[in-house]
């Protein structure tokens, strides 16, 4: 017998072992997320997918579905919390959409639109971070990294290379490259790596291509992220 839980009043079927997020995605129901990609082991770090399950706040991407669970996601208070989380992501880095080549193809921007985040209420930290242009085909813009660890997991688990890692703690946490020089150009990172295709923001960018796809024809220009899905699913539309 197929088991079910409810998500905002809808009956969602699930298989044993599936998380709330897995089952919701399979049923075509959108729960906002940035660090989740079903190809990789859930990390639960961005906290955008936090839902209320039987009154308790849990990350949908790491919490197993259970029969009869009553899950709330699209409620005013949970959406407000998501907006606050998004605002913190925006002010921690340098996310300047008007001057970012990923605009329209950016999942952070798309989720922010979906959740109704208009502008940050917090003070911008404006960190000073340099770009790494050492690789012949890719540039790293650390200004836009949101520490989702998708590149870390993809490089380790899918590419078996371990090119990326996170170093530091708390507000000091930052993306690093696994080379003595710390430069991407000194690794075996390759444009065909899965890690080159999963970044939800404008941190890992192919060189020389920035505006090849005109504004207006980008993946989130016409439909919201809830219908279009993740950046990682649309690599063919990105170049």
């Amino acid at each position: 017998m197929i088991e079910h839980f409810s998500l905002d009043g809808k009956r969602i079927p699930f298989q044993p072992g599936q998380t709330i997020m897995d089952a919701a995605m399979q049923a075509g129901e959108y729960i906002p997320h940035l660090c989740h990609n079903p190809e990789f082991r859930p990390r639960g770090s961005c906290r955008l997918c936090v839902v209320r399950a039987n009154g308790r706040s849990v990350a949908a991407c790491t919490s197993p579905a259970r029969e009869g669970l009553e899950v709330e996601s699209d409620t005013p208070d949970i959406q407000a919390d998501r907006r606050s989380l998004l605002q913190m992501l925006f002010v921690e880095g340098n996310h300047l959409c008007p001057a970012c080549e990923k605009s329209g193809n950016c999942q952070l921007q798309a989720v922010a639109y979906y959740c109704g985040m208009l502008a940050p209420d917090f003070t911008h930290l404006y960190p000073v971070r340099e770009l790494d242009g050492s690789h012949p085909d890719f540039v790293l813009d650390f200004n836009r990294c949101i520490l989702c660890e998708l590149c870390v997991r993809a490089s380790r688990d899918a590419d078996a290379k371990g090119v990326f890692g996170i170093s530091g703690r708390g507000i000091g946490a930052h993306l690093i490259v696994n080379a003595p020089s710390g430069k991407l150009g000194d690794t075996d990172f390759d444009p065909h790596d899965r890690a080159a295709q999963v970044c939800p923001v404008g941190a890992i960018l192919p060189k020389h291509k920035g505006y090849d796809v005109p504004i207006g024809r980008r993946i989130y220009d016409r439909k919201p992220v809830s219908l279009v899905g993740d950046v990682a699913d649309h690599q063919e539309d990105m170049s």
């Binding site: 001057a99 080549e101 340099e130 770009l131 920035g210 505006y211």
Partner: peptide
């Protein structure tokens, strides 16, 4: 300074 050349036409028009 330090930004990629291909974003210049969009950035500097601001």
């Amino acid at each position: 300074q330090g930004r990629p050349y291909w974003e210049l036409p969009v950035t500097v028009q601001r």
